[in-house]
């Protein structure tokens, strides 16, 4: 796994040799964010591109504000995943901000969408929820917040592409059972609270089949109005 690092590490070393060897004292790790977040790589992949593990989310290209909120939540234990809670425990805010900026600014290609194992009907139900919602059951369309292209909005709303179905349903489950919470008002908790088990399976499956859009970047802040307020997205 770490063999992957050798090439970029050498490239960085050579580069810095050109812009002044004094900047990079000998026998020191590269003075880069990439080297500082190697602790994250086994689970989140190189540059945060994700790995083959279906429960480990991609980080690359998500809005920096969103990633920063997650890091704060893991550090305080508000969002629970013990291996990460432990790693972040004694890291200061500005450093977490820098990590969030780093992953937000990386844009490795999105993975190929996985072929889905659920039926056409289930996928159609998922698509309907994501794009139109279900007004009768108080379920807003996911696109009304996550964007028409599902690429999210700066600074606090993540895109929903490049995630595996298992991860998406685990997160929605987390909100339904209270193991994941976001800044109040926690709009995702409201949304997830209205979803049934079958809704979750359907919407997660459909999202995971979406191909990469031409421009996966989150849209600028204020591009569209949210159906209701979210603490993670200050207006």
């Amino acid at each position: 796994m770490f063999a992957r690092f050798t090439a970029p590490a050498i490239a960085i070393a050579v580069l810095s040799a050109f812009d002044g060897a004094a900047a990079q004292p000998a026998n020191q790790p590269p003075d880069t964010m990439a080297a500082r977040v190697e602790a994250c790589t086994p689970c989140h992949g190189n540059k945060g591109e994700g790995t083959s593990d279906v429960y480990f989310p991609r980080l690359a290209g998500k809005p920096a504000g969103y990633l920063y909120n997650q890091l704060l939540a893991f550090r305080s234990g508000r969002r629970k995943y013990p291996p990460m809670n432990y790693l972040l425990e004694f890291l200061p805010d500005p450093y977490l901000e820098a990590m969030a900026e780093y992953f937000a600014s990386e844009h490795p290609p999105l993975p190929q969408p996985a072929p889905s194992e659920v039926s056409k009907d289930v996928l159609a139900h998922g698509e309907l929820l994501a794009t139109s919602g279900d007004a009768g059951r108080n379920i807003p369309a996911c696109v009304s917040c996550h964007g028409p292209g599902l690429t999210g909005m700066q600074p606090g709303i993540p895109g929903l592409l490049g995630l595996r179905a298992n991860y998406i349903s685990a997160q929605l489950g987390g909100w339904r059972y209270g193991t994941r919470t976001a800044k109040s008002p926690d709009c995702m908790q409201l949304v997830a609270g209205h979803l049934t088990e079958a809704d979750v399976t359907a919407v997660a499956a459909w999202l995971a089949t979406r191909p990469a859009p031409a421009n996966p970047a989150p849209v600028p802040k204020g591009t569209y109005a949210l159906p209701f307020g979210c603490g993670s997205q200050p207006n």
Binding site: C43, P83, L91
Partner: peptide, 24 residues
């Protein structure tokens, strides 16, 4: 098993980390 980061301090505000190997 768990990897770790030294604490972020005034003298070392952006420490380097070690990955956990429990899953690997």
């Amino acid at each position: 098993l768990n990897g770790g980061y030294p604490p972020g301090t005034k003298g070392n505000p952006m420490p380097y980390g070690m990955p956990p190997f429990a899953g690997l």
